[in-house]
Design a binder for these strands. Structure first.
Lengths: 155, 155
DNA sequence: ACAATAAAATATCATTTGGTCTTTTAAAAG
DNA sequence: CTTTTAAAAGACCAAATGATATTTTATTGT
């Protein structure tokens, strides 16, 4: 459903939302190694995101990528708009040409509410909210062993 | 989520389930034009499905593809196993490395039940059941104008 | 036997996605 | 003003997916 690029983008933005600020920027190198994403690939993605004002960046020594207060008000949809080149929510899951609420495919009643719920979350919840929720739930952006709530899964 | 190939495969098999039998076979040409799928592409897919006993086929005059009684007892998962080369239900939707019920990503509670419901349907419901349901619901496999329940959408 | 039919097999090509590398530009610090 | 740092830009390569065209094999009817 989501491309690798989009998943990488989302993870990176959420990482920046959790860790960065105007005064604490991260280079592509750090982000790549922290999230275990190929450096050159994530660099290109980060550049796209910066160009589209989803995140912020500065060149030169002490430069890097970060999320500003304004950036944090963005939502996931805006990330997807930059990376993905078509609406991931469009079209019947089975590819039936005229599947709709009136002529539902056999899994329409499963797929439609799922799409609705995701779209709601992706458009109404800010990056900041998302990042907070991740922290609270104890889920991981990084592969590296990070202790959360005293619960070190990597030992 | 599903590749074009898988969607085409599912539509074709369901078409055969609805329309074919040992005594009424369909050539790749007919299926392609009926479902508006590129001929050479669907031919290759049908061959794969036939080779894997998801559908049946006969060469020569009067030959073609069809679903036998046994074929109709197959389920959607078996189609996906033939066409798709990795489990579409595996992995976190956002690509978070260690997302789980214990460390859920922010959309885990939306995605997990969706996957469960789909998997249940794809593995426990036969092709025959699926085809029947499509007919009853009035949804379309073909792009061609077919009147269903007196409700001709193409006029 | 042979012509016609249609699947099976195979080789090939195009596009998209994923990923890498090199050069250029901007900014900071000595 | 030169060196260092790091993003920006763009060219490039590889793999996967989508799609096509050609040849071979099996079957049926004449």
């Amino acid at each position: 459903m989501l491309s690798n690029a989009s998943k990488y983008a989302i993870r990176s933005v959420l990482f920046l939302a959790e860790n960065s600020s105007e005064h604490k920027k991260y280079g592509a190198k750090e982000i790549a190694s922290e999230l275990e994403i190929p450096l050159s690939f994530i660099a290109k993605i980060l550049q796209k995101l910066a160009k589209s004002d989803v995140i912020s960046s500065n060149k030169g020594p002490g430069g890097g990528f970060y999320t500003s207060k304004t950036n944090l008000q963005n939502n996931i949809c805006q990330i997807l708009n930059v990376i993905e080149n078509e609406d991931i929510f469009e079209g019947c899951f089975l590819g039936l040409p005229r599947c709709s609420d009136e002529n539902p495919c056999p899994i329409h009643h499963i797929v439609a509410p799922f799409k609705d719920a995701l779209l709601e979350k992706f458009s109404n919840q800010s990056i900041a909210d998302f990042a907070r929720e991740i922290k609270e739930n104890g889920s991981f952006l990084s592969l590296k062993g990070v202790s959360i709530k005293g619960n070190d899964l990597l030992k």
